[in-house]
Nucleic acid binder design. Structure first.
Length: 961
RNA sequence: GCCCGGGUGGUGGAAUAGGUAGACACGCAGGACUUAAAAUCCUGUGGGCAGUAAUGUCCGUGCGGGUUCAAUUCCCGCCCCGGGUACCA
């Protein structure tokens, strides 16, 4: 009987579906385990072999946990909103809903062939109104909440209103956009509209002014990715920076909790580091600098104004030689002198054309002098105020004090404008070092170490001297001074910005918001949810900057009937305009893990009961590319829901594993210039050739199937080949897996040829889960051979031939060594090495002709997480009852796992002496005779007493002293 | 630019509380079985040099230094590749 994988896999997939083998319920008393994959975006191209990598790993782990007696929640769904479906809709007019549904269908078919143990009864789709009802619900709650630093949690906005009414805004420790201060009476005197505007400053979901990449010709906002050299990727139209009023989430309010929460979760250290850097907590000081009236030409009314800068290095205050403002800084209009107005205007116009990323990666230093000077807060010396785009408006105060000697960016700027700066400083070098012994002749000294020097001599107005202090001490002392003399204040700053939550797109969740008679946003009542996406004639933006939803002209909110109405006009009394932006991709993916716990609940995002049983995700598997997007937003979102009491855990994902990317492996043929002749790889240097991508699916082991190639394209029908050794050898390269490189490998093809079990094991065998690696179908035969060999262990002469004989020691050793290895490997997510261990064990058992149930039954259970179909089939042939999914993971017995490497105590006295006889029958004399082959090591060991000697196959390989 | 990874034979990779470098697998070469093919099995396979051979010997984990009796592993300085960089998901 042969290993007929096609038949076996079909049979068991149907059996699992029919018996709902992987369906789980909350079962109090049974330990739970929640294994989650990052749900896929169903793209039109279907799955390629890279996609299932993480799913296979999580499936192996889920099956392993089930065998260990856990109630495993392992769901799957679709992140169904996204740009590609919308782009496709714009091009073809096909509704994104239709294409998305078709893509989901295709994904499901592909996933089903791989034998995953998903509980499909819990499937969710982010574009399903029953699902996005809860995305909208959460948004309303965000809108109606503010963040209290006092209580360190989100609270209903009504409590803030209460506080305003009784004591005004002064002294409140709450998260806000701008620090406001008004008395209770001031609040009460405000109009309703004014009050609403004030509240915007505190809501966790708020309308704020944000900087975007605006492309007038496309009538839309672009991502930084979509802008190259100041023009749009699509079409090459000019793009400029523009302020736009958009919905934002006050993620920054949670900065401290997002940071401290990292300490308690089991994520890769590198990923946590990435998030820490992203959050970017820095302690420093805000320092106020006054503008000098005397040196400001043509000034008058603005005198006395101050500029506030943020610095983490107040110790370098004496090295400040100029100031720099971000081009978008509010200070800019106030400091520009008439003489510099034209130059500044030109500069601002050019800065508008550069995206933030271009600015940050720029080697080119640019800037313009504002014409004004500020006073050094301690020495009173004038400091020229410059404007440059290396200072970002969004961070700190959008203004810096430049210390060229101790900041590399300031240094680059000072060198670029050295001549002008020198003149402005009365001939002084702008680079003024403050740390003893540092060399600033070619670069700045950024390190926070060394002893301070060059504080001004006593006698000047300032009483601060930092000379002789360590940098760390100097920072503390400088801060104290700043506080004491009221030069500014101590502050903690975060790099983390609030998330822009509006998109000018069609295919996303509509905001449950309408604009009232004052033009202020109001949340829809929760009973009105879901607010469904309206139909539009076209999916393009309306051109004027209005989002696509503005095409749904008759879409409005009737506040009397409390429903969405199709009406010709908005009267602004009872019928109001609805928000026309939609939510971004991360909206739907921020709380999906909670929804899986209770996916059909119409009355709540998740019931308390379900939430308290499943709690949070025990294992989350997904790509590292989500490090600063989804994995921050979902933590934020979850913390908010935790504050509401909806989620019972503060962190959503306890343990996280990043699977590496699977890259493509492209193949090339070499065409001789101006001919239809192709030359094999190793002969190509003799000709003038152009490499041509060739579809990897007609190449095996880098040998081209010439008939398939001729049939591929009409122009190749009469192609000629120059062969080597009778073959056409292709070149290869590792590239991104994509259609245009002809290197996409479809899992369906692999499953058809080798079966899902082979594909699953091969994907694991390919390399460490967390590493990115190229896909190469070439090695797959080895895994397939392994499965056939495993299958043959059960048969003799074509008949099932498993015996009931008791197992021998040798076989038990093989089995238990394997159990130990596989168990620790699975727990460490080292699946590639466990596949190797299976191969070795099966080879050894084959050699021993072991067909004993006592060995094969536990072996089958052990292998089942990796290759479930073949194991299920053999399990039933073994006559074991029920599905293998309900079996138990075999127990490891130490007595059988004597390794072939031994450690034992010895005494060493110029000569090796062994206290114990060696196992495996190696005579002690033989070992004694063995000499360390390294003379130097032997010399080192002489006279020392080793604690142990490690011997492999009778040879001393290591002596530990 | 900044942040986070990675670099080991022809190929994917194994081995890091520092201690046999190259497990396992692919490919390749040779052989067995077969009319033949497929399948299966056996042997060899990092490189150089010496030897009929067993074997011996030197060199080898991106590059250059350092620590150590001993470095793929630890430290310093580079080079190259991948991911992220806030509207791709």
């Amino acid at each position: 009987m042969d290993y007929n994988f096609a038949e076996i896999e079909k049979k068991w997939q149907a059996w699992w579906a029919e018996n709902q083998t992987f369906r789980v319920e909350e079962t109090p008393g049974k330990p739970k385990f929640y294994v989650l994959d990052m749900f896929p975006y169903p793209s039109g191209a279907g799955l390629h072999v890279g996609h299932p990598l993480g799913y296979i790993a999580s499936d192996i782990y889920s099956r392993f946990r089930r065998l260990r007696g856990f109630n495993v929640l392992h769901p799957m769904g679709y992140d169904a909103y996204g740009l590609p479906a919308e782009q496709y809709a714009i091009q073809t007019g096909q509704h994104p809903e239709v294409t998305t549904a078709a893509n989901i269908e295709r994904y499901r078919q592909q996933l089903d062939k791989l034998g995953f143990s998903f509980d499909w009864s819990r499937e969710v789709k982010t574009c399903d109104p029953a699902y996005y009802k809860w995305t909208q619900w959460a948004f309303i709650r965000l809108f109606n909440s503010f963040y209290s630093y006092e209580k360190n949690r989100a609270l209903p906005i009504a409590e803030l209103v209460q506080a305003f009414e009784t004591s005004g805004a002064a002294g409140l420790r709450v998260a806000c956009g701008k620090e406001l201060s008004f008395p209770a009476a001031g609040w009460r005197a405000m109009s309703e509209k004014e009050k609403q505007e004030i509240l915007m400053n505190y809501r966790l979901a708020y309308l704020g002014d944000t900087m975007v990449n605006w492309c007038a010709d496309l009538g839309t906002v672009l991502a930084n990715d979509e802008v190259v050299n100041g023009v749009s990727l699509r079409g090459g139209y000019p793009v400029e920076q523009k302020v736009m009023r958009q919905w934002c989430l006050r993620v920054s309010a949670y900065a401290e909790r997002l940071l401290s929460g990292l300490d308690g979760i089991d994520w890769p250290e590198s990923l946590k580091e990435t998030q820490r850097n992203w959050i970017g907590r820095s302690e420093g000081a805000e320092i106020h600098l006054a503008l000098t009236p005397s040196l400001r030409k043509g000034a008058g009314d603005e005198d006395g104004r101050k500029i506030t800068v943020f610095t983490t290095r107040p110790d370098t205050i004496f090295g400040v030689t100029f100031m720099v403002l971000a081009p978008e800084s509010d200070y800019v209009p106030a400091v520009v002198t008439p003489g510099q107005q034209q130059a500044v205007n030109d500069y601002l116009a050019s800065a508008k054309r550069r995206t933030e990323r271009e600015r940050m990666s720029a080697r080119r230093v640019s800037g313009v002098f504002s014409g004004s000077y500020a006073l050094h807060p301690l020495t009173g010396e004038p400091l020229p105020v410059w404007i440059s785009d290396y200072v970002l408006a969004g961070y700190g105060t959008g203004a810096i004090m430049a210390v060229p000697a101790h900041d590399s960016r300031d240094y680059a700027f000072a060198k670029e404008f050295e001549k002008e700066l020198r003149a402005q400083l009365g001939g002084k070098d702008p680079v003024a070092p403050l740390i003893e012994g540092c060399d600033v002749s070619v670069e700045s000294f950024d390190a926070k170490e060394g002893k301070m020097m060059n504080s001004p001599q006593a006698g000047c107005a300032c009483r601060l001297s930092l000379n002789g202090l360590d940098v760390q001490e100097a920072i503390v002392k400088a801060k104290e001074y700043i506080k004491e003399y009221d030069l500014g204040q101590i502050r903690v700053n975060y790099r983390l910005r609030d998330a822009i939550f509006s998109r000018q797109r069609y295919w996303g969740e509509p905001f449950p918001v309408y604009y009232d008679a004052c033009g202020m946003p109001q949340a829809l009542p929760e009973e009105a949810l879901p607010l469904e996406l309206p139909e539009v004639d076209k999916f393009l933006p309306a051109g004027t900057g209005e989002p696509p939803l503005s095409r749904a002209g008759h879409w409005a909110w009737d506040s009397v009937r409390k429903k969405v109405v199709a009406t010709a006009g908005i009267d602004n009394k009872t019928v109001f305009a609805l928000e026309r932006n939609t939510m971004p991709g991360f909206a739907g993916s921020s709380a999906y893990y909670l929804r899986y716990m209770d996916p059909r609940n119409d009355g709540a995002l998740v019931s308390r009961e379900a939430n308290e049983y499943w709690r949070n995700v025990d294992l989350y598997i997904g790509g590292t590319e989500h490090a600063t997007g989804h994995l921050i937003y979902s933590r934020f979102w979850n913390k908010f829901l935790f504050d509401l009491g909806v989620a019972c855990e503060d962190e959503p994902f306890k343990k996280l594993i990043n699977q590496g990317m699977i890259q493509g492996r492209s193949n090339f043929v070499y065409r001789i210039q101006n001919t239809n002749t192709f030359v094999s790889l190793n002969l190509k240097d003799r000709y003038d050739v152009t490499p041509l991508h060739v579809d990897v699916n007609m190449v095996g082991n880098d040998v081209l199937d010439m008939d398939k190639f001729r049939a591929w394209r009409p122009e190749f029908a009469d192609a000629e080949f120059i062969l080597e050794d009778g073959k056409y050898l292709c070149g290869w390269a590792v590239e991104k897996m994509s259609k245009s490189m002809y290197n996409v490998v479809n899992p369906d093809d692999i499953v058809e040829k080798y079966g899902a079990d082979t594909l699953r094991m091969y994907e694991m065998f390919l390399g460490p889960l967390e590493q990115s690696k190229p896909w190469d179908t070439n090695g797959i035969d080895g895994v397939h051979r392994f499965l056939k060999k495993y299958w043959r262990l059960f048969f003799e002469g074509g008949a099932f031939a498993v015996s009931g004989e008791p197992a021998g020691t040798q076989e038990l050793k093989i089995l238990h060594r394997l159990i130990k290895k596989v168990q620790t490997d699975i727990e460490n997510f080292s699946f590639n090495t466990s596949v190797s261990a299976f191969m070795i064990a099966v080879n050894e058992l084959t050699e021993l002709k072991c067909r004993k149930r006592a060995i094969l039954q536990p072996l089958t259970a052990l292998l089942s997480p990796f290759a479930p179909h073949i194991c299920e089939e053999l399990w039933s042939l073994l006559g074991c009852s029920g599905s293998i999914a309900c079996a138990a993971f075999p127990e490891y017995e130490e007595k059988y796992t004597v390794e072939n490497s031994f450690e034992y105590p010895v005494s060493f006295n110029g000569k090796l002496r062994f206290k114990k006889a060696l196992p495996l029958g190696i005579p002690a004399k033989e070992i004694e005779a063995a000499v360390l082959n390294d003379e130097q090591s032997a010399k080192y060991l002489e006279g020392k007493t080793p604690k142990k000697v490690i011997v492999v196959e009778g040879k001393i390989v290591n002596v530990v002293v």
